[in-house]
């Protein structure tokens, strides 16, 4: 195993995990208003996707956050509901609260979980219509609530952002909770992973289109203006992917600077996702602006994930709070 990056074995293992994704979660499903990823909730639980990095005795798969991050990058590619991230974080939260029974039930798929972000006014729930539990993320960590405990729920949108958004009041008395110190890096890593997957998927979409779309008698990919956008996109993907793998390995090895690395991964992936989803629309031209094209779905999901992370500004502020090993008086790892 490499001391800096995901190993070949880890990459191979995750390959085997993701084989069913294309069939279960084609991106085109998001064009159907009635679709819900919660239809595949139990299947996902059976695959073990909610407990990749939890130990086997706690009902997990017993792998590390490296495999988990690689899997969630694939979830990002397929625009899988952030509820799946909620399940993983809720199981961790329950486990950290010492409630193993609850963790087991979440991992087994018995209790569907949705995710929410705490705001100044209350909470914003995402894709919560089929959930029984809600995991609320804030700058202080996570809190888990039964959905019945959530008051003043109001649907904000279902169409504009291509996912259901609701506002509600923040309830009291969570059934489980975890501090930022214990779970913050896990939240950031999983969001960074999904944003990395979005950046990668939109790069591939843009390049494929640039190769077939013809204008002025040639493929538009032969124009320098298009090439330069695509190069910026692939460099974003390379940076986000390698930063994700590097930070996940640092976190799995409990390296002293792992929080710095994960915070960097989130900032890099967020910017990569915004740039790439935007340029993918631009490269698709008029088609990219249409509702029937997948391009806008990636842009919108990038915004939803950024919001769940507390916003790019907050992610930068969180990075500022960490120490780099290249700062004064700091020792190198190794």
């Amino acid at each position: 195993m490499s001391i800096f990056h995901a190993s070949a074995e880890q990459l191979e293992l995750v390959e085997s995990f993701v084989r069913p994704l294309e069939e279960l979660f084609p991106v085109a499903r998001l064009h159907r208003a009635e679709h819900t990823d919660y239809d595949n909730w139990v299947t996902a639980a059976e695959f073990g996707w909610f407990g990749i990095s939890l130990p086997e005795e706690a009902g997990g798969i017993g792998l590390s956050v490296v495999e988990e991050a690689l899997l969630f990058a694939q979830f990002g590619r397929h625009l899988i509901s952030p509820g799946f991230m909620a399940a993983s974080l809720a199981a961790k939260t329950a486990s950290l609260s010492g409630n193993d029974e609850l963790a087991q039930k979440i991992l087994g798929g018995e209790i569907p979980v949705a995710i929410a972000r705490q705001t100044a006014a209350g909470i914003t729930l995402v894709d919560a219509e089929n959930a029984k539990l809600c995991l609320v993320i804030s700058a202080e960590g996570t809190k888990l609530f039964p959905v019945e405990a959530i008051q003043q729920r109001a649907l904000l949108d279902r169409t504009q952002w291509s996912i259901a958004l609701e506002s509600a009041a923040l309830p009291g008395n969570p059934i489980a909770q975890a501090s930022e110190e214990d779970i913050g890096a896990s939240i950031n890593l999983l969001i960074a992973a999904q944003l990395t997957g979005i950046a990668a998927a939109t790069l591939e979409m843009a390049v494929a289109y640039a190769q077939i779309r013809q204008q002025f008698g040639v493929a538009i990919g032969s124009f320098q203006a298009i090439k330069h956008y695509c190069t910026d996109m692939v460099m974003n993907v390379q940076a986000a992917k390698d930063m994700l793998s590097f930070s996940a390995v640092a976190m799995a090895g409990n390296q002293p600077d792992h929080r710095f690395q994960v915070a960097s991964a989130l900032v890099v992936a967020t910017r990569a996702a915004f740039f790439n989803t935007g340029k993918n629309i631009q490269i698709h031209g008029g088609m990219g602006f249409s509702a029937e094209c997948d391009a806008h779905l990636f842009l919108k999901r990038a915004h939803v994930l950024e919001t769940l992370a507390g916003g790019l500004k907050a992610s930068r502020a969180a990075l500022r709070a960490e120490n780099s090993i290249f700062g004064k008086d700091a020792a190198f790892t190794g």
Binding site: M243, A263, S264, S324
Partner: peptide
Amino acid sequence: SDTLMDLRADAAALRAMSYQFAI
């Protein structure tokens, strides 16, 4: 600060990319 944090994160990513390439 935003500019500096982007630089900080990008420098971390450059390191991650370079180590990956070397390995």
